[in-house]
Design a protein around this nucleic acid. Structure first.
Lengths: 340, 340
DNA sequence: CTGAAAGCGCTTACAG
DNA sequence: CTGAAAGCGCTTACAG
């Protein structure tokens, strides 16, 4: 049996204080970096030594209770395992630094982040909350009191702190690119969740297509969750109607979906790009090695994460905020590959 | 400015108690489901009503402090955004149910989970800890006291609760498959981190290759992190030596790496599988649509996650543990596709 | 069945 | 510069 050794007594501030010959208050001040001009150098050194010797770590629960807030930042997202999210997480971590601890939470399976998720997470008293691609009515029932930044939530700018991509340039590039290749009708595979960003991707593409004399087939909706097999099945089901409508290109709302489109085309015996062109959104790493390599509207995940974290830090501590906003450009660009 | 409305006073058990006309203790008992035979049905109902009216949620920090443990289960992993991990997370969540809240934490960028990470996370007083692919000396300096299950940590079975894949069958299948295709020398692209699972993959493959009269080129090591471009670069650098040694196949320790191998082969003008065969581990969804589609040792991520969570629940509450262990088979199998 | 009270381990005015 | 003490919001014996 893999029994752990008997739990050694948790080291408390009281134990550190006793060892250092100071009060608990002094320990607290020192370990929280508030000793400046309040604690003698000698006592501070004694505390630090005792901390090191005993391996003391401030109890997060007690600290959060006393201060009213922890140093946890929670990132709530609908589709954590999506490779796209890796970049976002990295960007958030880089910007957050070591003062806050980033914890990730996946929304209830397959669903979008909602107010209930936030309520549950709020009981942890997080220092801040980052929510990616929230549902449309996310803000309506939201428990407030925790600094909150939404990512990828177009349309909610007026009601919350939001960090969005500038999708327009990339979508415009994609439309122009397809028009130049002679396409006139485009099938569209949408995401299954009603995230505002999906809505926007579709509408922007519809408009851009129209500007270039093309038609986007998005009615009736063809939708799929992020699962490749599901996307492939949805595509196979839609293919006859799309072909009949004259579609020579298929755009998917995300690369994970576009991978399913590629699989479906292979299964249907359609050559890409000769019989049908395919493109996606995100520009995932794997999209460089698909058969054929995938044209995609590249979304800079790390920049999004960094901008969101920057924004959140400003909400948490308005005074300490870095002077320059400078979150870097969040403009989408088009990566052209063999699939178009 | 996206100012949030003034924070409404946090609802406390005291407020619920006052509204329900009971004591705080009664509220606690009811919301924690410990009312059975201790609280009159009437009072319980009054509490529940007050809870609903006020939207009360137990304060996690205070609860954790009082009980000594929260209901958070932390999953610590080196490479959260790896699509392979999505399945694992899903499996864990399914098995964990709604009683515990799963939070994910990425190990210090690019590194493996270590004792320091655990110490930091332990201050949250998690109910349990799940650690994926820990470093080799992970257990040496580990703060104990929290139920802990390791996933994908071969070799540590004797010293901790561990849930591992049975890699041997899949590796044997891969070796036999390659031998049947006439390969005699195999290049190996290893993972950059010294995770025990990577070590094991390589050693098992080396042994299986030998059994089938093949040689695995793993000395000197060729290694790469999970980034596709990095894996491609490592492959390009190693290719001349591999080719010179007569390698006609390349196996990568993970599909994310194998995708880089595919990219490198394309860049080097090598046809897959005619000039060189390629295979990986994990069987990621995208591996079904790569150019060419990728042969891979399939690792059932959801089964791993479910087994780990099952094991952890048993450690947290040995009495409540489900009678049947039955975590499902964790045997690796080979998915053969066009790349070999 | 119920509630008063101690205690979880901190942080932060406050008094010195 | 320092420490005693109140308080954060729960949970849990304990006494009734």
């Amino acid at each position: 049996m893999s029994t752990l050794p008997p739990a050694p007594r948790r080291v408390t501030a009281a134990m550190v204080a006793e060892r250092a010959g100071t009060s608990i208050a002094t320990v607290s001040l020192v370990v929280n970096g508030k000793a400046r001009g309040r604690i003698s150098d000698e006592n501070a050194a004694r505390v630090l030594a005792a901390v090191a010797e005993l391996g003391y770590v401030v109890d997060g629960a007690a600290s959060a209770l006393a201060r009213g807030t922890s140093d946890i930042v929670v990132l709530l997202a609908p589709d954590l395992p999506n490779p796209f999210f890796g970049r976002v997480i990295k960007g958030v971590q880089e910007e957050l630094g070591s003062r806050y601890q980033l914890l990730l939470s996946a929304a209830a399976s397959g669903a979008q982040p909602n107010a209930t998720d936030v309520r549950r997470l709020s009981s942890l008293r997080p220092a801040g909350l980052l929510v990616s691609a929230p549902g449309p009515d996310f803000l309506d029932d939201l428990p407030t009191g925790t600094p909150l930044v939404l990512l990828d939530a177009p349309g909610l700018e007026a009601r919350a702190a939001v960090v969005n991509y500038d999708l327009a340039p990339g979508v415009e590039e994609l439309a122009r690119h397809l028009a130049e290749r002679g396409h006139r009708v485009i099938g569209y595979l949408d995401g299954a969740t009603p995230a505002a960003t999906y809505l926007l991707r579709r509408e922007l593409l519809r408009e851009a297509a129209a500007r270039h004399g093309m038609t986007l087939l998005a009615d009736p909706d063809v939708r799929s969750g992020p699962d490749l097999a599901e996307a492939a099945a949805a595509t196979l089901a839609a293919l006859p109607a799309w072909r009949e409508a004259g579609a020579t290109a298929i755009v998917a709302a995300a690369d994970t979906l576009a991978h399913g489109v590629l699989a479906a085309c292979a299964e249907a015996g359609l050559r890409v790009p000769e019989d049908v062109a395919v493109a996606g959104f995100d520009d995932l790493p794997a999209s460089a090695v698909t058969a054929p390599s995938l044209t995609s509207v590249a979304l800079p995940g790390d920049a999004l994460g960094r901008a969101a974290a920057h924004r959140l830090l400003a909400l948490i501590a308005p005074d300490e905020a870095a002077p320059e906003e400078a979150p870097g450009p969040l403009a989408a660009t088009l990566t052209v590959r063999a699939s178009t």
